[in-house]
Deep mutational scan, measured.
Amino acid sequence: QGDIVVALYPYDGIHPDDLSFKKGEKMKVLEEHGEWWKAKSLLTKKEGFIPSNYVAKLN
C-alpha cells in the first residue's frame, strides 16, 4: 500500500509523463525511484512522476 504525500510546493511537469500538482495537493505514492516517484493525485486521479523533494509523507 502506497504512502500518502502532500505537496510542499507547486510543480509544473516538464516531461509528458510528469504529474503536475499544486501546493497542498495530496497524492498516493505508487513507486519510489530515487529522486522521482510515480504517484497518483487524489484530486485529479492522474498518474505521473513527481520530484520527491517537493512532497512530504503524511503519517
Rank of each mutant, 00 (worst) to 15 (best):
Q1N: 12
Q1Y: 14
G2H: 12
G2T: 09
G2V: 09
G2Q: 10
D3L: 15
D3E: 12
D3T: 15
V5W: 13
V5P: 00
V6H: 05
V6A: 05
V6K: 05
V6Q: 06
A7L: 01
A7Q: 00
A7Y: 00
A7R: 00
L8M: 08
L8D: 02
L8A: 03
L8T: 04
Y9L: 09
Y9V: 07
Y9P: 00
Y9F: 12
Y9M: 11
Y9N: 05
P10G: 11
P10T: 13
P10L: 06
P10A: 14
P10V: 06
Y11E: 01
Y11T: 01
Y11G: 00
Y11D: 00
Y11N: 03
Y11I: 02
Y11C: 05
D12H: 13
D12I: 14
D12Y: 12
D12F: 13
D12R: 13
G13M: 06
G13C: 05
G13P: 07
G13Y: 02
I14S: 09
I14N: 10
I14P: 07
H15R: 13
H15Q: 10
H15L: 09
H15W: 11
H15D: 08
P16S: 09
P16M: 09
P16Q: 10
P16F: 08
P16L: 08
D17W: 15
D17Y: 12
D17H: 12
D17L: 11
D18R: 09
D18Y: 13
D18N: 08
D18T: 13
D18E: 15
D18K: 08
D18W: 10
L19Y: 03
L19M: 06
L19P: 02
L19G: 00
L19H: 00
S20H: 07
S20N: 06
S20P: 09
S20I: 06
S20L: 04
S20Y: 04
F21E: 00
F21L: 01
F21Q: 02
K22I: 13
K22S: 10
K22Q: 12
K22W: 04
K22L: 11
K23G: 05
K23N: 04
K23I: 09
K23Y: 07
K23W: 06
K23D: 05
K23Q: 11
K23S: 07
G24D: 06
G24N: 07
G24I: 01
G24F: 06
G24C: 12
E25Q: 04
E25D: 07
E25K: 00
E25L: 01
E25C: 03
E25N: 02
E25Y: 02
E25I: 01
K26V: 14
K26Q: 12
K26F: 15
K26S: 07
M27S: 00
M27K: 00
M27G: 00
M27V: 02
K28I: 15
K28C: 13
K28H: 10
K28S: 08
K28Y: 14
V29E: 00
V29C: 04
V29H: 01
V29S: 01
V29F: 04
L30I: 10
L30W: 05
L30H: 03
L30N: 03
L30T: 06
L30C: 07
L30G: 02
E31M: 09
E31K: 08
E31S: 12
E32T: 13
E32G: 10
H33D: 09
H33P: 05
H33F: 12
H33C: 14
H33M: 10
H33Q: 09
G34Q: 05
G34T: 05
G34H: 05
G34F: 04
G34K: 06
G34I: 04
G34W: 04
G34V: 04
E35I: 13
E35T: 11
E35G: 09
W36D: 03
W36T: 09
W36G: 03
W36H: 07
W36Q: 07
W37V: 11
W37K: 13
W37E: 03
W37D: 03
W37A: 07
W37N: 04
W37S: 07
W37H: 09
W37M: 15
W37R: 07
K38A: 05
K38I: 12
K38D: 02
K38E: 06
K38H: 08
K38C: 12
K38L: 15
K38F: 15
A39S: 03
A39V: 14
A39M: 04
A39F: 01
A39R: 00
A39T: 04
K40E: 10
K40G: 04
K40F: 11
K40H: 09
K40D: 02
S41Q: 03
S41D: 03
S41E: 02
S41V: 04
S41W: 00
S41N: 05
S41F: 00
L42T: 05
L42M: 09
L42N: 03
L42D: 04
L43V: 11
L43M: 10
L43C: 12
L43R: 12
L43Y: 10
L43W: 14
T44M: 02
T44A: 03
T44C: 03
K45V: 05
K45I: 06
K45M: 14
K46M: 12
K46V: 07
K46H: 08
K46T: 06
E47C: 12
E47Y: 07
E47P: 01
G48C: 02
G48N: 01
G48P: 00
G48Y: 02
G48W: 00
F49H: 05
F49N: 10
F49S: 05
F49D: 04
F49G: 04
I50E: 01
I50P: 01
I50S: 00
I50V: 07
I50Q: 00
I50W: 01
I50H: 00
P51R: 05
P51L: 05
P51F: 04
S52G: 08
S52L: 06
S52E: 05
S52P: 13
S52I: 09
S52F: 08
S52M: 11
N53P: 05
N53S: 15
N53F: 09
N53A: 13
N53K: 12
N53C: 14
N53V: 08
Y54P: 02
Y54F: 12
Y54D: 02
V55A: 04
A56H: 10
A56D: 07
A56Q: 13
K57R: 14
K57Q: 09
L58Y: 10
L58M: 11
L58N: 05
L58I: 13
L58F: 10
L58S: 07
L58T: 09
L58C: 13
L58P: 07
N59S: 14
N59Y: 11
N59D: 13
